[in-house]
Design a protein around this nucleic acid. Structure first.
Lengths: 214, 214
DNA sequence: GGTACGGTGTTACTAGCGGTAACGGAAGTG
DNA sequence: CACTTCCGTTACCGCTAGTAACACCGTACC
């Protein structure tokens, strides 16, 4: 009947969709954010229009792909963030989780952070600007929620928590990006340094001798 | 003579170059990072090959444009950073300078941060990935230098200063990006919140009642 | 005067991209 | 057999970055 048939079709479509996503994944892992629809289709053994029938446009495919990785990474981060440990340990463990992830798969990371904005396809084209880095936004909101749940910030705590969530995530991201490019120190050192920064060592440190005139 | 002639030509070429950059600026201000070479050429009243003769490729033009704005912004930041005031005041003033800049010209800001990575031009194409956001890197290094010069961080100070420089810049950037999109509070509030974060309020805050089991 | 030259500008083109229309063939249903 | 309904293809559009080839114009040199 209709229902069973539809179910079969849907299951088949879902399987195909997963296959396509895996193929896209392989290409992105190889080519970074430059991965073209042609290349992805070729990797999947089919042609472009099928991709477009499944995902609408490039933005759709990228969103699906990004959601996948973002979900996976966010799950790891949530685990580190919710661990039954002291705050400093949780912060360090979360930082380390994130850095380990971007260290393990830099191509995927670059793809998630800079989802190919140069879309010159005339009419619609992926509305750049608003969703420039969904992963960052989601991590920021997630962290904000955890902060607000677990830290007592007094009045204005919600606003403060959100600012801090996005700020800390940005700190982690920028430091990670720079570290990934230059590798100036070990991951553990980086984690410690960032945690120290968050722990107010900047405010606590003294001025250098021979510092400013005042 | 050769020399005077060359000088004349060079001066004329420089003037032209500045004109082209200003035209490109106008287009970027209008269209954001999507600005195409055709559009820029049209705005300047000339055609593409001239642009390419002056700037090599799109990356060259974008780099020239980015350097311009980056230099301007960095000068403002350096002024705020080097002001004869207490550390907290300087930090707040620097944050505010940056946020005011991105608030005043969001299109330019977006262009600087996400310089159109989708370059699918076959052969060379702007080597994405390394120069994904030169402004961030330069700001990070600059801040690192100031930190190392003026703050006494004990052993390992150079590494620590660089990590912090990039981390703080990333925090500022991510928070600014989010704030620019959602406008959840005033600029002054954002500045205060970020400075509070850097001043260790996260470490100092107590746990929420009914918090984690441990 | 004629001629070769460097610089400025154009038109017309290539190759590749995202995206789509139109067609071809298999499968199930009357 | 006809008819619809997908799955898949080829062939195309309009756009992009980038380039080759040609035209013009002032100047230096013979």
């Amino acid at each position: 009947m209709d229902t069973t048939q539809r179910t079969d079709q849907q299951r088949s479509a879902d399987r195909r969709r997963r296959e396509l996503l895996e193929a896209a994944d392989r290409v992105v892992l190889r080519d970074g954010p430059q991965a073209s629809m042609n290349a992805i289709a070729a990797e999947a053994g089919i042609t472009k229009p099928i991709l477009y029938r499944h995902f609408g446009d490039k933005g759709g495919l990228y969103a699906a792909l990004a959601t996948r990785h973002t979900d996976a990474l966010l799950a790891s981060l949530r685990a580190a963030l919710d661990a039954p440990a002291g705050r400093r340990e949780r912060v360090e463990s979360t930082l380390d989780t994130y850095l380990a992830a971007i260290e393990a798969r830099p191509q995927v990371y670059r793809f998630l952070m800079h989802p190919a904005e140069g879309s010159q396809g005339g009419d619609q084209g992926f509305d750049v600007g608003k969703h420039s880095a969904p992963l960052l936004r989601r991590m920021g909101e997630e962290l904000a929620q955890v902060i607000e749940e677990r830290v007592d910030l007094g009045p204005g705590s919600q606003r403060l928590a959100r600012v801090w969530g996005h700020g800390i995530v940005g700190m982690m991201h920028a430091a990670g990006d720079w570290w990934l490019g230059e590798r100036p120190c070990s991951r553990a050192e980086l984690v410690r340094s960032l945690a120290d920064l968050l722990w107010g060592r900047l405010a606590a440190a003294g001025d250098r001798v021979g510092g400013p005139g005042f």
